[in-house]
Write a protein that binds this DNA or RNA. Structure first.
Length: 581
RNA sequence: GCACCCAUAGCUCAGCUGGAUAGAGCGCUGCCCUCCGAAGGCAGAGGCCGUAGGUUCGAAUCCUACUGGGUGCACCA
């Protein structure tokens, strides 16, 4: 049950009648007609902009349309009153029985309340994390992982057919570096002194990999030239790193559907095929790029390269797909990779990148637009940096000093729930402060705690009711009748619950899971507020001593709130607490 | 030099893709908390939405130009 879309449908129906009666011209587009929560509760329960949106195309005065529309709307039993206000808003007051209907419906629908068919089963591929398989995940990756995962869940909830995907960058030169670093650890495992030269990965996490290599190959690889072991150790070490990364992701509760290997694109003709396609479209040419304006790089020289005409799709310059020595650039397998996504039948692609990859956005979008001939859109979400703090002091990470903070560190200290929620309380394109002290604080100042506490309070009420020997099962609550004369605090809560399906759609359309987090905070706030009023006004308590019928109505409302918190938290990947300890 | 992102209360940030008098938390100020749900509660002050133009019934939101901050900038991944 989506109260907003129901009422919007009523508005559209009324508009159709007006068209049929000649009060409005034929052929109007109602797409922009919205029914929204009003900014101020004094204005009513819902507001529509219909008259103002249609005024111009209908060539009528907004207030004129509004008056006529309002007159039609009040005929609907669900609509108590429709008043025209301001420049042409129609403020609606709903029949009080609707709140009761809604509450029962939420309890009955349970976790499915708020699910939407907005996505129409459109196949969407969300690629996120895609950390290089050269070491453990660090905090920066963590935010991307949490964001991507929540976005995927959100889209799933909104009716998309979602695939969660991780692109393993196991094809490039960094994997050679990894293999060489692992080889040194292998020598170490064999009792030799490792030579961790400049440019190799110094991390301890490769020590067990070295031991594993020894366990597999014995001393066979010692004193052998690189050609002998490089290929084997590349895949061996990559496997080991991916194993570790999978573990990191699991500790955060992130589970991918697909791990797609870059390496698998090489030697299989896939890169060539993707490039061939661009070539056939006339978008590949041999040429020389203009030198960049401003300060010229020291070693700049003219080179002829194979270029992709990304400028035809809004990029600033055409981009090379081959180096001057004929090898592929990194961009080439990326093109091929995205081509496979298109070929695998996805209608919509979303890439979650770190903000430092911002310069890559235009060319990637260009490639997807070109390959799919505009059929598939690629949305790229850039994730800003995480700034770490410990007790208010900035906490600098340095790979060299070995003080970089891994995902595991964060999850072990803060817990997956806290980490996830906190990282979603900011827009993806805004930098995020992560202060261990603040994040772990158990008080109402901590949004995670605040939201979980609201859920726990409802659970506590249900437990108490059970202790009193009352049946407060969902089946029972789904039949409860709420008063038609709700207190303002109760109304505020039930209206917020009514907004959930609408919020899901808005958040999904914008690809912005943080909106869910903020909504949950507001919802929790309404519940706490109502709860607190129970101090002074016993009639507002959920448990009405000795009055099972009255209690069931109020508990139904509380339960509905918990249902929404629970499914909202599920989208964020946070477990709802049953009790606070 | 160019491109992208950001700029909203003292601080940290929302603002539902153009709607009504711009919101929340922290901090600040005041009141309440013997007992009934206090790891508290209620209320208040605080704003030229970076600046200047433009688009229209209407702009924090869209466009342009500035200012200030971040990121990235020929074959690296």
């Amino acid at each position: 049950m989506n109260l907003f879309s129901d009422i919007r449908a009523a508005v559209i129906a009324a508009l159709d009648v007006m068209v049929a009666e000649g009060a409005l011209p034929e052929g109007l587009d109602f797409a922009n007609v919205a029914v929204e929560p009003p900014r101020d509760a004094l204005h009513g329960d819902m507001a529509s902009n219909a008259a103002m949106v249609l005024a111009k195309p209908a060539n009528r005065k907004p207030r004129e349309i509004a008056e006529a529309l309002a007159a039609k709307l009040v005929a609907d039993a669900r609509i108590l009153s429709a008043d025209v206000a301001g420049p042409g808003f129609i403020n609606l007051r709903l029949a009080p029985t609707l709140w009761s209907d809604l509450t029962r419906n939420v309890v009955q629908t349970g976790a499915a309340y708020g699910r939407s068919d907005l996505g129409q089963g459109v196949k969407v591929n969300v690629e996120y994390v895609s950390a290089n398989p050269t070491g453990p995940m660090h905090v920066g990756h963590t935010r991307g992982a949490v964001f991507g995962d929540a976005l995927a869940s959100l889209l799933d909830f909104a009716g998309y057919d979602v695939t969660r995907e991780y692109y393993i960058n196991d094809g490039g030169a960094q994997v050679d570096v990894l293999a060489r670093s692992a080889y040194e650890r292998y020598r170490e495992a064999c009792g030799l002194e490792p030579e961790i030269r400049e440019g190799l990965y110094p991390g301890d996490y490769l020590i067990p990999v070295g031991e594993a290599i020894k366990a597999k190959y014995g001393r066979d690889l010692l004193d052998k030239p690189e050609e002998v072991w490089l290929v084997d150790l590349r895949s061996f070490a990559t496997e080991a790193m991916m194993e570790m990364i999978r573990g990191d992701l699991a500790s955060l509760g992130v589970k991918m559907d697909v791990f797609y290997s870059e390496k698998s694109l090489y030697g299989t003709g896939q890169i060539e095929a993707a490039l061939k396609r661009l070539q056939d479209l006339g978008l590949i040419y041999e040429g020389v790029l203009e030198p960049p304006k401003g300060k010229l790089p020291e070693d700049w020289e003219e080179r002829e390269q194979t270029l992709f005409r990304s400028t035809q799709f809004g990029d600033d310059v055409d981009r090379p797909v081959k180096k001057s020595d004929g090898a592929w650039t990194y961009f080439a397998p990326d093109i091929a990779y995205h081509w496979t996504k298109i070929e695998r039948g996805f209608d919509l692609l979303i890439d979650v990148f770190g903000a430092d990859h911002g310069g890559y956005v235009k060319r990637m979008k260009a490639a997807v637009a070109a390959l799919s001939e505009g059929r598939v859109t690629l949305d790229i979400k850039l994730i800003q940096l995480v700034k770490l703090f410990k007790n208010g002091e900035p906490f600098k990470m340095s790979k060299r000093a070995g003080t970089f903070v891994t995902l595991r560190d964060v999850v072990e200290q803060a817990g997956a729930d806290v980490t996830r929620f906190h990282m979603l309380t900011r827009k993806n394109d805004a930098p995020l402060d992560f202060d261990f002290a603040k994040v772990l604080e158990q008080s109402k100042d901590n949004p995670v705690f605040y939201v979980q506490y609201a859920h726990a309070r409802v659970c506590s009420v249900l437990r108490k009711a059970a202790e009193a020997g009352w049946d407060m099962s969902d089946a029972r609550l789904a039949k409860a009748e709420l008063s038609t004369d709700l207190h303002e605090a109760e109304l505020s809560l039930v209206k917020k619950i009514a907004e959930w399906p609408r919020l899901v759609e808005v958040a999904a359309r914008a690809n912005e899971p943080h909106r869910v987090a903020f909504y949950l905070y507001d919802l929790a706030s309404d519940l706490h507020s109502l709860w607190n009023r129970g101090h002074d006004d016993a009639s507002l308590r959920f448990l009405q001593e000795g009055d099972e019928a009255a209690s069931s109505a109020k508990i139904a409302l509380a339960r509905a709130c918990a249902v929404v918190i629970s499914s909202g938290l599920a989208i964020l990947g946070v477990t709802p607490a049953e009790e606070m300890r």
